[in-house]
Amino acid sequence: MLTKEEVVKLATLARIELTETEVEKFQRELSTVLDYVEELQQVNIDGVEEVSQVTGLVNVQRSDVAVLASNVDAIKGQAPELKDGYYKVKAIL
Protein backbone atom coordinates (compact mmCIF):
# COMPACT_ATOMS: atom_id res chain seq x y z
CA MET A 1 0.00 0.00 0.00
CA LEU A 2 1.31 3.44 -0.94
CA THR A 3 1.57 5.93 1.92
CA LYS A 4 -0.26 9.25 1.86
CA GLU A 5 3.09 11.00 1.62
CA GLU A 6 3.95 9.00 -1.51
CA VAL A 7 0.65 9.98 -3.14
CA VAL A 8 1.21 13.64 -2.28
CA LYS A 9 4.71 13.46 -3.74
CA LEU A 10 3.43 11.84 -6.96
CA ALA A 11 0.75 14.49 -7.30
CA THR A 12 3.38 17.21 -6.89
CA LEU A 13 5.61 15.60 -9.51
CA ALA A 14 2.60 15.30 -11.84
CA ARG A 15 1.53 18.91 -11.09
CA ILE A 16 -1.97 17.96 -10.00
CA GLU A 17 -3.43 19.53 -6.87
CA LEU A 18 -5.32 17.00 -4.74
CA THR A 19 -7.78 17.49 -1.90
CA GLU A 20 -7.40 15.47 1.31
CA THR A 21 -10.27 13.17 0.21
CA GLU A 22 -8.64 12.66 -3.19
CA VAL A 23 -5.33 11.73 -1.55
CA GLU A 24 -7.11 8.90 0.28
CA LYS A 25 -9.06 7.84 -2.81
CA PHE A 26 -5.94 7.68 -5.00
CA GLN A 27 -3.96 6.00 -2.22
CA ARG A 28 -6.43 3.11 -2.42
CA GLU A 29 -6.79 3.09 -6.20
CA LEU A 30 -3.11 3.44 -7.11
CA SER A 31 -2.30 0.67 -4.64
CA THR A 32 -4.88 -1.55 -6.36
CA VAL A 33 -3.18 -0.96 -9.70
CA LEU A 34 0.30 -1.58 -8.30
CA ASP A 35 -0.87 -4.81 -6.63
CA TYR A 36 -2.39 -5.86 -9.95
CA VAL A 37 0.91 -5.57 -11.83
CA GLU A 38 2.90 -7.28 -9.05
CA GLU A 39 2.66 -10.69 -10.78
CA LEU A 40 4.97 -9.38 -13.47
CA GLN A 41 7.87 -9.69 -11.05
CA GLN A 42 7.65 -13.50 -11.46
CA VAL A 43 8.33 -13.53 -15.21
CA ASN A 44 11.82 -14.68 -16.18
CA ILE A 45 13.32 -11.86 -18.25
CA ASP A 46 16.96 -12.93 -18.15
CA GLY A 47 18.70 -11.94 -21.37
CA VAL A 48 15.56 -10.38 -22.86
CA GLU A 49 16.01 -7.09 -24.68
CA GLU A 50 13.41 -4.43 -23.90
CA VAL A 51 11.14 -3.14 -26.67
CA SER A 52 11.94 0.32 -27.97
CA GLN A 53 9.97 0.37 -31.23
CA VAL A 54 7.39 -2.28 -31.93
CA THR A 55 7.78 -2.67 -35.71
CA GLY A 56 11.57 -2.43 -35.51
CA LEU A 57 12.20 1.04 -36.93
CA VAL A 58 15.50 2.65 -35.95
CA ASN A 59 16.43 6.36 -35.99
CA VAL A 60 13.96 7.65 -38.57
CA GLN A 61 14.99 11.15 -39.57
CA ARG A 62 13.73 13.83 -41.88
CA SER A 63 15.66 16.65 -43.51
CA ASP A 64 15.92 19.73 -41.33
CA VAL A 65 13.96 22.16 -43.46
CA ALA A 66 11.75 24.92 -42.11
CA VAL A 67 8.15 24.88 -43.33
CA LEU A 68 5.96 27.95 -43.31
CA ALA A 69 2.97 27.63 -40.97
CA SER A 70 -0.06 29.54 -42.15
CA ASN A 71 -2.05 28.98 -38.95
CA VAL A 72 -0.01 30.92 -36.40
CA ASP A 73 -2.95 33.12 -35.46
CA ALA A 74 -5.25 30.14 -34.99
CA ILE A 75 -2.65 28.47 -32.78
CA LYS A 76 -2.07 31.56 -30.66
CA GLY A 77 -5.80 32.20 -30.55
CA GLN A 78 -6.15 29.11 -28.34
CA ALA A 79 -4.05 30.65 -25.55
CA PRO A 80 -5.92 31.64 -22.39
CA GLU A 81 -3.86 34.84 -22.21
CA LEU A 82 -1.67 36.71 -24.72
CA LYS A 83 0.11 40.03 -24.40
CA ASP A 84 1.65 41.77 -27.42
CA GLY A 85 1.54 38.45 -29.30
CA TYR A 86 3.35 36.56 -26.52
CA TYR A 87 2.01 33.92 -24.15
CA LYS A 88 1.46 35.49 -20.76
CA VAL A 89 2.47 33.57 -17.63
CA LYS A 90 2.74 34.41 -13.93
CA ALA A 91 5.98 35.93 -12.75
CA ILE A 92 8.52 33.26 -11.94
CA LEU A 93 10.95 35.43 -9.99
Partner: peptide
Protein backbone atom coordinates in the same frame (compact mmCIF):
# COMPACT_ATOMS: atom_id res chain seq x y z
CA UNK B 1 -0.43 26.92 -9.02
CA UNK B 2 -1.42 27.55 -12.65
CA UNK B 3 -0.15 24.07 -13.49
CA UNK B 4 -1.48 22.29 -10.40
CA UNK B 5 -4.92 23.87 -10.33
CA UNK B 6 -5.54 23.90 -14.10
CA UNK B 7 -4.70 20.20 -14.25
CA UNK B 8 -6.68 19.40 -11.10
CA UNK B 9 -9.75 21.15 -12.53
CA UNK B 10 -9.28 19.98 -16.14
CA UNK B 11 -8.54 16.26 -15.80
CA UNK B 12 -11.05 13.64 -14.69
CA UNK B 13 -10.31 10.95 -12.10
CA UNK B 14 -9.25 8.28 -14.61
CA UNK B 15 -6.73 10.61 -16.27
CA UNK B 16 -5.37 11.63 -12.85
CA UNK B 17 -5.09 7.98 -11.82
CA UNK B 18 -3.18 7.08 -14.96
CA UNK B 19 -0.92 10.14 -14.84
CA UNK B 20 0.06 9.35 -11.26
CA UNK B 21 0.52 5.63 -11.96
CA UNK B 22 2.75 6.55 -14.87
CA UNK B 23 4.68 9.05 -12.79
CA UNK B 24 5.27 6.33 -10.19
Amino acid sequence: EVYEKSRAEGFGDEAKRRIMTGTY
